[in-house]
Amino acid sequence: MALLELDGLQVSYGAIQALRGVSLEVHEGEIVTLIGANGAGKSTTLNTISGLLRPHRGTVRLEGHDLTLVPPHGIVARGVVQVPEGRRIFGRLSVLENLQLGAFTQRSSHAIREGIAHAFALFPRLQERAGQLAGTLSGGEQQMLAIARALMARPRILLLDEPSMGLAPVLVEQIFEAVRRINREGTTILLVEQNAVMALETAQRGYVLETGAVVLQGPAADLQANPEVRRAYLGQ
């Protein structure tokens, strides 16, 4: 059984239908990427998994349990945690406070301390800036903080929405390295990206989304080799 399973998801914003029956699966331990152009419905898909949006048809299942009626905080508590698009960190709070808030669903202070230590091990830059206001971090550091904050909730599956957005190539490389490491340490990852090159290099499998529907899917290597993908997303 898949860890996370979307089945025929349809989501609308008023009259605009953003998802027209999206189905995909993520298995335990995988990195799966969801690529697509602007407005394809990638963020909408993630927000529906997190419970921030409700599908009018279709289901989201975690290990077979239907999540569509679970409130967003309940979904976080079940181990599905999203890193929102555009590095939404708490800018007026310090790095440390951001991490502490990320652990909101954790009750034991021991677990919180361990989580912070883990986050700092993953991103040493954050440790150097623990007391700094998150809003004054650089773009790359903010993305690291956003990921670290999501990890504080000890997710089983991490939903990443365009972590490479607006970052220099060196930083993108660092972020993806961290993503691979998080995955190696046991967290399943669903990675939404426009940067298809990096995403397909990192992931094991991928889905291509176009105007609210999955048009291609398969192992990342196959997608990389696919002529249509090469033309539309890899710029070749």
């Binding site: 997190s50 921030l52 409130p71 967003p72 905080h73 976080v76 508590a77 945690v81 999203q82 929102p84 939404r88 960190i89 708490f90 800018g91 007026r92 709070l93 502490q100 808030l101 990320g102 909101f104 669903t105 904050r149 999501a150 504080m152 909730a153």
Partner: peptide, 25 residues
């Protein structure tokens, strides 16, 4: 308290607060 921290989070950003597992209601 945890409730106080939840308040702080929704004060700073409601959407993110929801995404980190805080019940807005």
């Amino acid at each position: 308290s945890p409730l106080g921290r939840a308040w702080m989070a929704i004060r700073e950003d409601e959407d993110v607060a929801e995404a980190i597992g805080i019940s807005l209601v």
